Amino acid sequence: MATATVTSKGQITIPAQVRASLGLDTGDRIEFVDLGQGKFAIMAATHSVKDLKGLIRKPAKPVSIEDMNQAIAEQGSRAE
């Protein structure tokens, strides 16, 4: 298990094993995600929204704004 010590300034050094596992490099950002019950997950936050381009395929047929609004309205009426 990797451990770190908090300095008087509230800083820690992330152990090399953890940095390697997260793919972190100098200047990268991380996020602390509250899992509840005093537990947190550390996630690399180095990727921009632009990195998501191409992850989702375009629909086979275009969807109109009216169709989207109708789907939202139907889903909203079921949630109540």
Rank of each mutant, 00 (worst) to 15 (best):
G76V: 04
K9F: 06
S64E: 04
G27M: 05
R29E: 15
E80Y: 10
I72R: 07
G23T: 02
A44Y: 00
V18M: 09
A4L: 03
N69D: 09
T3H: 06
V18I: 14
S21D: 13
Q17C: 10
R78A: 15
G76E: 14
F40Q: 13
L35K: 12
M43I: 07
R19W: 06
H47L: 10
D28M: 09
V33N: 11
R78P: 10
A73I: 03
D34N: 15
Q11L: 06
T3F: 04
V49S: 07
E31N: 15
E74D: 13
E74Q: 10
V6K: 10
F32A: 01
P15M: 00
I30R: 02
Q75N: 10
H47F: 09
A41C: 04
G38Q: 04
I14D: 08
E31A: 15
M68G: 01
A71E: 09
V18P: 10
G23C: 07
R57V: 12
E80V: 12
G23Y: 05
F40E: 13
D28P: 03
G10T: 04
L24M: 09
A73Q: 08
R19C: 13
L55H: 05
T7A: 08
K9H: 08
Q37F: 04
K39T: 14
G54T: 01
T7R: 05
A45N: 15
L22D: 08
S8H: 05
V6S: 06
V63R: 02
R57Q: 14
S8Y: 00
V63F: 02
D51G: 04
R78K: 15
D25C: 03
D25V: 01
L35Y: 07
Q70A: 10
I14A: 06
T3L: 04
I12R: 02
E31T: 09
T46P: 00
S8F: 05
I56M: 14
N69T: 13
G38S: 05
V18Q: 10
T46W: 00
E66R: 12
P62M: 02
L52F: 12
T5K: 11
A60T: 07
